[in-house]
């Protein structure tokens, strides 16, 4: 479904991604693990069109999306849940969710949008209770749920998640990972970036290890879980 072929990216000519190739098959969960600063978020930003790449190609469902600007990517079926949530902090929960449907927001789509809103509230009931609250005043866990809900409103076929477990209590992390598994079972393809390597490897089918901008290891997630090198560096021995 998504094929990344040898991409390189840099900030102010400091290279951050070096010849990275990744394949995300339809219907699977693929995870990318790696230390701080290894380039995971940069990779997801490159896919979403938020940053330009210097080299390589990004292919999505037989279409070259390398040069497509960020605001048109979501319409193709790719939504990113960015690192640190990036909510519209001054707007209400409800407005954040509705804006998720911006790219198909029309009067004639009203019923469909209301249906999606309902679904989002079904997945995260707490958000319905807080629908009038200003997003910036939600708790960290609620904000993460809202960020996911907003991305889901875009009707993604491929969902990119950047560290959904960051700064969240274990119980909520489990809830969020359950949602990810359920979404995948319902047909959404998922590319998950995580520092919480154990959790990421457990839900993923396939995994890549990113180290200072290079893919150093890849394989079936369940096998990587037992790989001695992965164990030592990412799973704490």
């Amino acid at each position: 479904m998504l094929k990344i072929e040898g991409i390189s990216a840099a900030y102010h000519s400091i290279p951050v991604l070096k010849d990275v190739s990744i394949h995300v098959p339809k219907g699977k969960v693929v995870s990318i693990i790696g230390a701080n600063g290894s380039g995971k978020s940069t990779l997801l930003k490159a896919i979403s069109g938020l940053i330009k790449i210097n080299q390589g190609r990004i292919q999505y469902q037989d279409q070259d999306i390398t040069a497509i600007p960020a605001h048109r990517i979501v319409g193709l079926g790719i939504s990113l849940v960015p690192e640190g949530r990036q909510l519209f902090a001054h707007l209400s929960v409800q407005d954040n969710i509705r804006l998720g449907a911006y790219h198909y927001f029309k009067k004639s789509n009203r019923a469909e949008i209301e249906q999606s809103v309902k679904q989002a509230y079904q997945i995260f009931p707490i958000l319905e209770k807080r629908s009038k609250q200003i997003a910036g005043t939600l708790s960290g866990g609620e904000q993460q749920m809202l960020a996911i809900a907003r991305a889901l409103m875009g009707r993604p076929e491929l969902l990119l998640l950047d560290e959904p477990s960051m700064g969240i209590a274990p119980l909520i992390v489990r809830e969020i990972f359950n949602v990810i598994v359920n979404l995948n079972q319902a047909g959404t393809t998922i590319l998950l970036v995580e520092q919480n390597a154990k959790a990421a490897l457990k839900v993923a089918h396939h995994s890549y290890v990113l180290e200072s901008g290079n893919i150093v290891l890849e394989g079936i997630a369940a096998e990587l879980l037992h790989n001695p090198k992965v164990k030592e560096v990412y799973l704490g021995g």
Binding site: G49, R72, A89, H90, G100
Partner: peptide, 24 residues
């Protein structure tokens, strides 16, 4: 209006606005 909300969204977070399809 959704356009009005979209403008406020750009003000809050331009990158996130792009991610939901707003042409900043």
């Amino acid at each position: 209006t959704i356009i009005g909300k979209a403008m406020s969204a750009c003000a809050d977070n331009a990158d996130a606005a792009k991610l939901v399809g707003i042409n900043v």
